[in-house]
């Protein structure tokens, strides 16, 4: 695990210094939420019914900016070669990158939550803990898949375009689950009986794609 902490620490430290990805991501997410608030009548019940969808669309789009940087950050000065030549395992590199991206995404989401609450007149406190659970599970799904595809596309010139093209279709089951569960919590305040399969799907997605990424990352990085 030594490599995991070293990579996560370095990525987090680099990002906090440059603030390149996090500034872009927060601004983008807030702009999306603002534009949607113009497009829909924010206080209407129908809007609340699609609130989970709006929130996760903002998170997914803004998240791509952070995920793109996770491996692109290593291209400067050929740092990726220096890291791959070091004795850390591929899975340690993946987990370190994923952990840093996950924390950065959570920061973006936690900044967006109160803004969303104000724009759309939604009370987030009545289902805060279940919402946090969905947020963590959904964000990990976005991170696990996003960091894997970021590694796959890091040497492609159009990586900023390729990452979303690969990520969003593959992420759609997890996104649908997160959207449905978030909407359910924002309208009813608790998980309903119909939500259990979505919750199981989200957990299953996280486990399967994390395991796949851990197993395949070495082959992705060293060809």
């Amino acid at each position: 695990m030594r490599g995991v902490w070293a990579i996560a620490r370095k990525d987090f430290q680099s990002e906090l210094r440059s603030k390149e990805a996090i500034n872009a991501s927060v601004s983008f997410a807030l702009v999306i939420l603002l534009i949607f608030s113009f497009a829909f009548e924010p206080t209407a019940d129908e809007t609340r019914a699609i609130a989970g969808g709006l929130l996760w669309i903002a998170f997914a789009f803004a998240g791509a900016l952070i995920l793109n940087r996770s491996f692109a950050r290593e291209l400067q000065n050929d740092c990726l070669d220096a890291v791959i030549a070091s004795p850390i395992a591929g899975w340690e590199l993946f987990l370190g990158k994923a952990l840093a991206s996950f924390l950065l995404l959570l920061v973006v989401e936690l900044i967006c939550f109160p803004v969303f609450s104000i724009f759309y007149g939604v009370n987030l406190t009545k289902a805060f803990w279940p919402l946090l659970l969905v947020l963590i599970l959904g964000t990990w799904a976005l991170t696990a898949l996003g960091v894997t595809f970021a590694a796959l596309t890091v040497n492609i010139r159009l990586r900023e375009l390729m990452l979303p093209l690969l990520l969003y279709p593959a992420l759609s089951p997890a996104l649908m689950a997160s959207m449905t569960l978030t909407t359910s919590l924002l309208t009813a305040g608790v998980f309903g009986a119909n939500d259990q399969p979505w919750l199981r799907l989200l957990v299953g997605f996280d486990v399967i794609f994390t395991a796949l990424a851990l197993a395949l990352i070495e082959f992705v990085l060293v060809l």
């Binding site: 030594r2 490599g3 902490w5 070293a6 990579i7 620490r9 370095k10 430290q13 680099s14 210094r17 440059s18 400067q76 000065n77 050929d78 740092c79 070669d81 220096a82 890291v83 030549a85 070091s86 004795p87 850390i88």
Partner: peptide
């Protein structure tokens, strides 16, 4: 390994760079 690129991070300090690679190794 020392390749074509210098393999160090611009955002970090000289000490932080060496500490990072010392941790990895």
């Amino acid at each position: 390994y020392l390749g074509h690129g210098i393999g160090i991070y611009d955002e970090l300090t000289a000490r932080e760079n060496l500490l990072h690679f010392a941790r990895l190794y």
